[in-house]
Simulated assay, not measured.
Amino acid sequence: MIILYQYSIILIFSFALLVFVLLFFVSAPYGKFSRKGWGPDIKSKWAWMIMEFPSPFLMTIFFLTSDLKSLPQYIFILAWLAHYVSRTFIYPFSQSGREKPYPVIVALMAVVFNLLNGLANGYGVFSLYSYNLSWLYSWQFISGFIIFITGFAINKTADEKLRKLRENTPGEYVIPRGWLFDFISSPHYFGEIIEWAGWAIMTWSLPGLAFALFTFANLFPRAIASHRWYKSHFPGYPPDRKAIIPFIL
């Protein structure tokens, strides 16, 4: 297992670099960037559920089979599942675009990543690293947990506001307004980047760092592309609104 873990870490870091570069040239073909030419597709709701499922499944398996269960690790699994149970079983069936086509090849690439990520974080956090009760009083856990919860709240709030907006304007895109949308175009991406940065600090682990870097590498270029899309499609788009970092970028 240690060999699989090590290769998973290497691949996640490698994929982060590759994805970060590629996404500045080729937008992932789903959502507002959906387009033909990517082979067969399935409905978005099934794609999301299938590609996200390995993360909660593997983390749960590694947690249940671990001999190192401590209170910090109970908190880790609850934090992970808080995100991924929603992302796997609720979000796919509540989003407005759940019936839209989603390229199978993109879903399969996400499955591969989530298998690697679930293995790396599951084995690392629950079998390789050790966290005793005193870890709850460490600066890493306290600051990381606060950052994780903050990012989680931002991500879920943004998702819910976008869901309601799309329910009120089915079949068309409009300019999101209010809350963090007055400052950045993609609060949901901003929140998720913060969330997994918090996970990396809270667990103080190499797989946590790998996941946080991949999240940034994946979502930062997409946020930039989304911001440009809004500006090109809406001449009246707020000129002071940034892409993903309030007041900065």
Rank of each mutant, 00 (worst) to 15 (best):
Pro239Ser: 14
Val26Glu: 10
Glu172Val: 12
Phe57Pro: 02
Ile61Glu: 01
Tyr84Asp: 00
Leu180Glu: 10
Tyr74Ile: 01
Ile142Asp: 01
Leu71Met: 15
Lys231Trp: 09
Glu167Pro: 02
Leu22Thr: 15
Leu71Tyr: 13
Phe211Glu: 00
Thr203Asp: 00
Ser44Val: 11
Ile146Gln: 03
Leu22Asp: 09
Val112Thr: 12
Thr150Gly: 13
Trp48Cys: 06
Ser44Lys: 10
Phe113Pro: 03
Ala153Arg: 13
Lys32Ile: 15
Ser8Thr: 06
Arg166Leu: 11
Ala225Asn: 13
Tyr137Glu: 12
Asp67Tyr: 11
Met49Thr: 15
Trp135Tyr: 08
Ser226Gln: 14
Thr60His: 03
Phe15Arg: 02
Val85Ala: 09
Ala47Ser: 04
Glu192Leu: 03
Ala212Tyr: 05
Thr88Met: 09
Phe216Ile: 13
Trp48Asp: 01
Lys231Leu: 12
Asp159Val: 08
Val174His: 13
Ser186Pro: 02
Ala225Thr: 14
Pro101Met: 07
Pro239Asn: 07
Glu195Asp: 10
Gly236Trp: 09
Val21Leu: 13
Val85Leu: 14
Ser70Thr: 14
Arg87Tyr: 11
Val104Pro: 03
Gln95Ala: 11
Pro221Ile: 06
Ile154Trp: 08
Ser8Val: 04
Lys45Val: 12
Leu165Glu: 02
Phe76Tyr: 08
Leu71Ser: 06
Ser66Met: 13
Gly198Gln: 05
Trp80Tyr: 11
Leu116Arg: 05
Leu165Gln: 04
Ala223Glu: 05
Gly178Phe: 11
Phe20Asp: 01
Met59Arg: 07
Phe33Cys: 08
His233Glu: 13
Phe211Ser: 00
Phe25Pro: 03
Asn218Ile: 01
Ser134Cys: 01
Glu160Pro: 00
Phe63Pro: 03
Thr169Val: 11
Ser8Asp: 00
Tyr237Leu: 10
Trp204Met: 05
Arg35His: 08
Tyr131Ile: 07
Ile149Lys: 01
Leu115Met: 12
Ala120Asp: 01
Thr169Tyr: 15
Tyr102Asn: 14
Ile184Asn: 09
Ile201Cys: 02
Lys36Phe: 03
Gln73Ala: 06
Glu167His: 12
Phe25Gly: 07
Tyr237Cys: 11
Lys100Gln: 15
Pro239Cys: 09
Arg98Thr: 08
Thr157Ala: 09
Lys242Arg: 04
Lys43Trp: 04
Gln6Asn: 12
Pro176Val: 00
Pro54Cys: 08
Ser186Phe: 10
Pro176Gln: 10
Trp135His: 04
Pro29Gly: 07
Ser34Gly: 06
Leu68Phe: 13
Leu4Phe: 10
Glu167Leu: 14
Pro101Ile: 13
Val19Ser: 10
Pro56Glu: 00
Ile184Arg: 02
Ala110Pro: 05
Leu108Glu: 07
Arg166Ala: 07
Ile146Trp: 09
Ser143Val: 15
Trp46Gln: 09
Arg98Gln: 15
Thr60Arg: 05
Pro103Leu: 02
Phe93Ile: 13
Tyr91Ala: 12
Pro235Tyr: 12
Trp48Val: 08
Ala217Gly: 04
Met109Trp: 11
Pro101Leu: 06
Glu167Ala: 14
Phe247Leu: 05
Asn168Phe: 05
Tyr131His: 06
Phe148Asp: 02
